[in-house]
Write a protein that binds this DNA or RNA. Structure first.
Length: 418
RNA sequence: GUGGGUGUAGCUCAAGGGUAGAGCGCCUGACUGUGGCUCAGGAGGUUGCGGGUUCGAAACCCGUCACUCACCCCA
């Protein structure tokens, strides 16, 4: 038997219904905030991701699905969507538009990691990107949209954490200061952190090992090393969140894994997930458009993991299924008559079904019950000959006869809102 | 890439060397043209796969594959 690829899952109809709720909320709220949908390819030239995400990040070093095209060029299944959106923004010269360019996207991403709870090799993200504004209010808007989206889905136990990484000039200065501090206590750090000192010292702050946490208790804080401009930007973002009543936690240890982030970074976590507890995250990336060959353009965005949201989505947010009509058609003359009614019902916009395998009335009614039909139209040979059908209300068991020609219309007016 | 856990009926799980079981689901009948509920009956298994130990293996050993959780890292 051929089975699916490790870490790549099928969404069966029952679960797809949950996803539709999530996707509908994403589209509705994005539109409400005046973000427009953008659809970019799920694969791009490898270099795009290497340049944007950062050549020395885990994603680029060991997690990308990269393959050779027939002409020998290297292509990669997108591990995230920001790079592709920025590429499209530059390629179509969207920055030339007089209005701010704000986009949202929805779709699959690919990373070759060992699967675990809330982490798959093909996973799905909803995200937004806002180009063109340096204003802290752009940061606030993006965070506000993220928070509203998660709130409207009634996800439990959420925490919003926020930090500033400073601008491109601030970071090297801080990195230096942090390294000086860490060198003094290298021995007390875990193996991982000793390695991180060489690769990405900022991540040492993010370590969960208790001894590392205490060792870095006194570490210089990123927020203390911000330039006045960076500091002011951060203060204004915080002030904006306060003004809108969005609850947050300042976390000076919050460091993000992608190289392109600058200034504001944020992350929403939940206590109701496993070890992979980040529901959504994002930040500002003022240098990325320029890095990829576009005009100097400030930008900010977020991405949320749909699988992680689906894991937490309470049953109460799921809509109840619509009422459907089942046509129980059997016998030489009953079947054609029933199929005619089924066709009419569907033409009138009534959700309806039949079962071509069922040969007896009993079998039909059992199927109707399983499908949760509100009404059943019974058409056997007797009814077909009389030109009548029986309408059965499944809940009350009440039945009455209708003329065959008027049956579909009669049921439609009964079910559809006037 | 590393480590732990688990693989038995369609599903959830028992049986821990001696005849493979339960609940749910499915099928049939009671009800020959009326669903659910009840009752009676029935079908369904190379115990993931390959080897080994043993008179005898679902169980013990080795290998392998799959799933799963965690590390790294991330949404």
């Amino acid at each position: 038997m051929i089975h699916g690829i490790k870490g790549v899952k099928d969404l069966l109809p029952e679960e797809a219904a949950r996803w539709q709720v999530i996707e509908a909320a994403a589209r509705r709220l994005s539109t409400l905030y005046d973000y427009r949908e953008i659809r970019v390819p799920i694969f791009e030239v490898t270099e795009l991701f290497a340049r944007s995400i950062g050549a020395s990040t885990d994603i680029v070093e060991k997690e990308m699905y990269t393959f050779q095209d027939r002409d020998g060029s290297s292509l990669t299944l997108r591990p995230e969507a920001t790079a592709g959106v920025v590429r499209a923004y530059i390629e179509h010269n969207l920055g030339a538009s007089p209005t701010a360019q704000k986009f949202f996207y929805l779709g699959p991403m690919f990373r070759h990691e060992r699967p675990q709870a809330g982490r798959l090799r093909q996973f799905h993200q909803y995200g937004v990107e806002a180009f063109g504004s340096v204003s802290p209010w752009a940061d606030v808007e993006v965070i506000s949209l993220l928070w509203r989206f998660l709130s409207e889905l009634h996800l439990p136990g959420l925490t919003l954490e926020i930090n500033s990484l400073g601008n491109a000039a601030d970071r090297p200065v801080y990195k230096e200061a942090l390294l000086d501090f860490l060198k003094g206590r290298e021995k007390t750090l875990c193996q991982n952190c000793q390695r991180r000192m060489g690769t990405n010292p900022l991540r040492v702050l993010d370590c969960k090992v208790p001894t590392c946490r205490t060792a870095t208790e006194e570490a210089p804080k990123l927020t203390d090393h911000l330039s006045p401009q960076s500091r002011q930007h951060f203060q204004e973002v915080i002030g904006g969140l306060d003004a809108l009543g969005i609850p947050y936690l300042l976390n000076p240890r919050l460091v993000r894994g992608l190289d392109y982030y600058t200034l504001t970074t944020f992350e929403v976590t939940s206590q109701h997930l496993g070890a992979q507890n980040a529901v959504g995250a994002g930040g500002r990336y003022d240098g990325l458009v320029e890095t990829l060959g576009g005009p100097k353009t400030p930008a900010i965005g977020f991405a949320v993991g749909m699988e992680r949201i689906a894991l937490m989505l309470p049953a109460s947010t799921l809509p109840s299924p619509g009422k459907m009509v089942f046509v129980a058609a059997f016998g030489q003359k009953g079947v054609p008559a029933g199929m005619q009614i089924l066709h009419e019902l569907r033409s009138l916009g009534v959700q309806s079904d039949s079962d071509y395998r069922a040969l007896t009335l009993k079998a039909h009614l059992r199927q109707a019950d399983r499908l949760g039909a509100a009404f059943v139209l019974i058409v056997g040979d007797d009814e077909a000959e009389k030109g009548q059908v029986i309408l059965r209300d499944m809940a009350s068991k009440e039945q009455h006869e209708l003329p065959l020609s008027a049956a579909a219309h009669s049921v439609a007016t009964r079910l559809l809102p006037a």
